Computed example of a mutant assay.
Amino acid sequence: MIRRRVVVRGTVQGVFFRASCQQEARRHRVSGWVSNRPDGSVEAVFEGDASAVEHLVEWCRTGPPRAVVESIQVTEEEPAGFSGFDEQ
């Protein structure tokens, strides 16, 4: 099990980024959360099987069809034992 925190910048709010991210995470059985930040970016924490988490990190590089991702920051963290995936 691994955990990654990502901050995605660009046109990522108001384009269903959070809802799409939540769907993708649940489809791949990844736990964690996703949230809009006041600065216009989206922050997410993914926790689970290494290949599934890395898939979600890669998904964030493009996001849903209406998103325009300009940059993504990825930080490795220690797993906390999340259960489920929430949109905050």
Rank of each mutant, 00 (worst) to 15 (best):
residue 76 E to Q: 13
residue 2 I to D: 04
residue 36 N to G: 00
residue 26 R to Y: 00
residue 16 F to H: 10
residue 77 E to I: 05
residue 72 I to T: 15
residue 86 D to C: 07
residue 24 E to H: 14
residue 10 G to D: 06
residue 34 V to S: 04
residue 9 R to K: 11
residue 65 P to S: 14
residue 12 V to W: 00
residue 48 G to E: 10
residue 28 H to G: 02
residue 74 V to Q: 04
residue 65 P to I: 08
residue 44 A to C: 04
residue 8 V to L: 02
residue 9 R to T: 10
residue 4 R to M: 11
residue 62 T to L: 13
residue 60 C to E: 03
residue 43 E to C: 04
residue 86 D to L: 11
residue 57 V to G: 11
residue 2 I to R: 12
residue 71 S to E: 15
residue 62 T to K: 15
residue 68 V to W: 13
residue 81 G to F: 08
residue 37 R to F: 00
residue 19 A to K: 12
residue 16 F to T: 06
residue 12 V to F: 01
residue 24 E to S: 13
residue 49 D to Y: 08
residue 47 E to K: 06
residue 41 S to Y: 00
residue 43 E to W: 00
residue 8 V to W: 00
residue 40 G to Q: 04
residue 43 E to S: 05
residue 86 D to Q: 10
residue 53 V to D: 08
residue 47 E to N: 07
residue 87 E to W: 09
residue 40 G to W: 06
residue 82 F to A: 13
residue 88 Q to N: 09
residue 47 E to R: 07
residue 30 V to D: 09
residue 47 E to F: 07
residue 70 E to V: 05
residue 4 R to V: 05
residue 28 H to M: 12
residue 5 R to F: 05
residue 82 F to I: 01
residue 64 P to K: 06
residue 3 R to H: 10
residue 70 E to F: 02
residue 74 V to H: 03
residue 53 V to W: 09
residue 61 R to C: 10
residue 52 A to G: 07
residue 13 Q to P: 01
residue 71 S to P: 01
residue 25 A to Y: 08
residue 42 V to W: 00
residue 73 Q to H: 10
residue 46 F to L: 05
residue 67 A to I: 05
residue 16 F to K: 10
residue 88 Q to G: 13
residue 80 A to I: 14
residue 41 S to P: 00
residue 54 E to G: 02
residue 62 T to E: 15
residue 56 L to A: 02
residue 52 A to K: 14
residue 34 V to P: 00
residue 40 G to V: 01
residue 56 L to V: 06
residue 26 R to L: 15
residue 16 F to P: 00
residue 35 S to Y: 04
residue 7 V to C: 08
residue 7 V to W: 06
residue 53 V to Y: 05
residue 69 V to H: 02
residue 17 F to V: 01
residue 68 V to N: 15
residue 85 F to K: 09
residue 65 P to M: 09
residue 49 D to R: 15
residue 29 R to I: 02
residue 1 M to G: 14
residue 4 R to E: 07
residue 11 T to N: 13
residue 39 D to R: 05
residue 1 M to Q: 14
residue 88 Q to T: 07
residue 26 R to M: 12
residue 84 G to I: 11
residue 87 E to K: 09
residue 82 F to Y: 13
residue 67 A to P: 05
residue 18 R to P: 02
residue 78 E to R: 14
residue 55 H to G: 04
residue 38 P to V: 10
